[in-house]
């Protein structure tokens, strides 16, 4: 039985799925941007950024990317298992 409410739900589902894939596509760009930020840091031995801080920043970015990547790939995986064709 097809009622209008069901249809809306399905379309919204498809919409979410596409935005999820957009997220997946943008993630490496976000990573590249965040890891390119150190280019702006001063290399001045006196007034620059300490290596310790740099390490913390770079590994924090890494953790975020891994976390987000895991979340997204889990969601995409659930989608791919439920519906393979609509993703390609």
């Amino acid at each position: 039985m097809k009622n209008p409410g069901k249809r809306v739900f399905v379309e919204r589902d498809g919409y979410r799925r596409r935005r999820l894939l957009d997220c997946l596509r943008v993630l490496p760009m976000l990573g590249a941007f965040l890891w390119a930020l150190p280019l702006l840091w001063s290399s001045d031995p006196q007034a620059g950024v300490s290596t310790a801080d740099a390490i913390l920043y770079i590994f924090a970015v890494w953790c975020c990317l891994v976390g987000l990547g895991a979340l997204l790939s889990y969601k995409v995986g659930a989608l791919q298992d439920s519906d393979r064709d609509s993703l390609e």
Binding site: P38, L39, S42, S43, P45, S50, T51, A52
Partner: peptide
Amino acid sequence: MLDRIETSEIGMWQMQGGRWVSLI
């Protein structure tokens, strides 16, 4: 450890932007 890093020879961020980008 972090303190030790700061006081070491490589304690300051010294990076050539060109090398950073090219190597990535």
